[in-house]
Design a protein around this nucleic acid. Structure first.
Lengths: 201, 201
DNA sequence: TATTATAATGACTTAAAAGTCATAATACAA
DNA sequence: TTGTATTATGACTTTTAAGTCATTATAATA
């Protein structure tokens, strides 16, 4: 396997752009090569097969997102502040990469074309993120901020789900271009729902 | 197009079983025919193409689920009671069809192999369900039960998402066989989260 | 029973895309 | 500069599965 980092990244970014344009399921190795301006055989010098390429596209995207969220959250103290920062950062990341996420969230979905092994690492990544949120919730429980009857890791799942669903709702209702006030409002809305629910006080 | 309802249903149910066993992406028309004990050409007498078949599998499943949930909810009065009934019925439906939903939720996902038109009807079905929940929330707002700052239809989306996520969490953590107490507990948990959030009072 | 209409068959055609590999181009070292 | 190693190429092979249709079987009707 050849190790030219520039070409490797070129193939990755070309794949990412293609996914934004035509979606996962229409992605072919021929198109990837064409988009990158190289021959198909070359793609196979850098990636074992299509599954590995898709896996790297997904994992590199996740790592970028997770890192920025962790950095942002680290600046806050207190469960509520951390959760608010996390939600806001996550929503921002989704909007900055909205063409990609629109494909992931709406047009198709995620792990259908991955082989078993890649599916597992997909689930592991999700778990890393939800566990991270679970830790925040756990600290909040310990400090008396949060209720203790919901299992933290499960709470993490629920929150990720709410963030994603909020984005889907907006995309479906043609709120696709990012507007700072909307992102701010959505952040408050999800935080509020997750903290207090829809019931009146 | 031939109209023998028994054979039509045979093909549908064979497809459903196959999806439970091998998943959507491994489903081929040859396998469907084999499972149903008929020739491949016959499948095409009842369904225009593979897309139409998948679309019917999904829509017939949805109609069954939606109908039972509507019937159940109609028996209750008051927003909270209706929501609780809805959540419980939905979770029960997921567990009764857990092999199918496991595939849908975990192994693969939903609309990737559908053509544009079928994707649209997929989204329309989701909307019908979330709007139905939205109506319940709206009534609750009018009666003073629920907060009025969350848009009802969006609330519906959020709730569906929480129900689904709860099931995914259980499936991932090897709680796959339905246990009445667990279903009861999960129902309470989601209702509680949706009504009151994770914050302490 | 003979004739016609309907339903079913499965071998075959077609298409698409993944993956290969002999050959060519380029970079690097002696 | 020449030889060697590395990288790149794209035509070709292979695989897989959707969809077709001439033929056959079955049911309906006269």
């Amino acid at each position: 396997m050849v190790e030219n980092i520039d070409k490797y990244e070129l193939i990755l970014s070309s794949s990412r752009k293609l996914i934004e344009e035509i979606g996962f399921s229409a992605l072919t190795m021929d198109k990837v090569a064409q988009k990158a301006g190289i021959a198909k055989g070359t793609v196979y010098l850098y990636f074992k097969d299509k599954d590995e390429l898709l896996e790297k596209v997904l994992s590199s995207g996740f790592e970028r997102m997770f890192e920025r969220i962790q950095n942002r959250v680290a600046k806050e103290s207190g469960g509520i502040n951390k959760l608010k920062a996390l939600i806001g950062e996550n929503i921002n990341h989704i909007y900055e990469n909205r063409y990609f996420f629109k494909t992931i969230f709406l047009d198709e979905v995620n792990v259908v074309f991955l082989k078993k092994k890649s599916k597992e690492s997909f689930n592991l990544r999700r778990k890393r993120y939800t566990d991270f949120i679970g830790e925040i919730i756990k600290s909040g429980i310990d400090s008396g901020e949060f209720r203790s009857d919901l299992y933290p890791a499960k709470g993490g799942y629920m929150l990720v789900s709410l963030i994603k669903t909020g984005a889907i709702y907006n995309f479906l209702n043609d709120r696709f271009e990012p507007v700072p006030e909307m992102i701010e409002k959505d952040t408050e809305e999800i935080l509020n729902l997750f903290l207090h629910g829809i019931s009146v006080k």
